[in-house]
Nucleic acid binder design. Structure first.
Lengths: 151, 151
DNA sequence: CAACATTCAATGTATAGACATATATTTGCA
DNA sequence: TGCAAATATATGTCTATACATTGAATGTTG
């Protein structure tokens, strides 16, 4: 569905630029809903899922809050509080860093890894289901345009 | 900056599809920050701004909560509560609809219109500043790909 | 080394999104 | 007509974002 229909806009946009912004926000919101519903049965939010993925990607190395903040998709979200919630579910561990006591070393637990394996399998298969409309070449083009859009 | 650098991802993405999703979410968050900071001096949020724009677009016709919900970019947001906040700032008016007392007719006030004129001028000029990297043709291509992405 | 600046994480306080539920109307149809 | 279903909005609760502030630990520099 074209963006104009999606938001029932009658008037034309004042420029393709304007339309791109609206389309970006709308599409992100669309994906957000898809992802939220997929993750809900597993009891974690997208942001928590994202943190688990970053931690898994670190291998044996622990991450600090700072590392997480840098790598999160939305780096204004509050890594501290998200980690706290993951810890309550025993999905991550938090240890004071011995080298620098300001820091906190965060690692994913076995339980966290297991949950992540399950969910990421489902997430990825659903992604491909949702993306059957875009070819690999189109996805690549989209990536280039989005990168360029940010300047 | 390419998305891999932006989120400091070392490993390659498992597919362009995956990368597109990450890029979409990241770019939306980037825009969100830009817009939030632009609007902050005016004391309204992006969502409130969006509602004011929809109301202005209605011309003389009032909008109901339902109309707003349908047209909002994120239609899970809570139009009721957003309208309540705008009303507190005297930017909108809310009247019980005489035809159907379940409904509420919402209109933008003169004060709301004035605020919107100021902010939208600034928003649009900043949009163009932020978009100087994309040509009109590229913006159009981006729109097509985003529409297609949603299926 | 002491004083000051910087860094890292946590927290307080707004606002908003996700979703279930409540409440008041209106509609539709037996 | 009467009553169940549908509709429009509001609200409760949890989660997350935005941003300022705090407080502890560490760096830096005179």
């Amino acid at each position: 569905m074209r963006i104009e229909e999606a938001i029932k806009q009658n008037k034309p946009f004042s420029s393709e630029f304007q339309k791109s912004i609206v389309n970006l926000v709308y599409t992100a919101s669309w994906w957000n809903q898809v992802a939220t519903r997929l993750l809900r049965p597993f009891g974690i939010s997208q942001e928590q899922y994202n943190i688990l993925r970053i931690l898994r990607g670190m291998g044996d190395q622990p991450a600090t809050i700072k590392t997480l903040t840098e790598r999160m998709l939305d780096n204004n979200s509050n890594a501290s509080r998200l980690v706290e919630k993951l810890k309550k579910k025993a999905l991550v561990e938090r240890l004071e860093c011995p080298m620098d006591r300001r820091r906190v070393d965060i690692t994913i637990t076995a339980k966290g890894l297991q949950l992540l394996d399950e969910t990421s399998k489902i997430m990825e298969s659903d992604m491909h289901k949702n993306f059957k409309h875009l070819t690999e070449a189109e996805a690549q083009q989209l990536n280039e345009l989005l990168d360029k859009m940010r300047g």
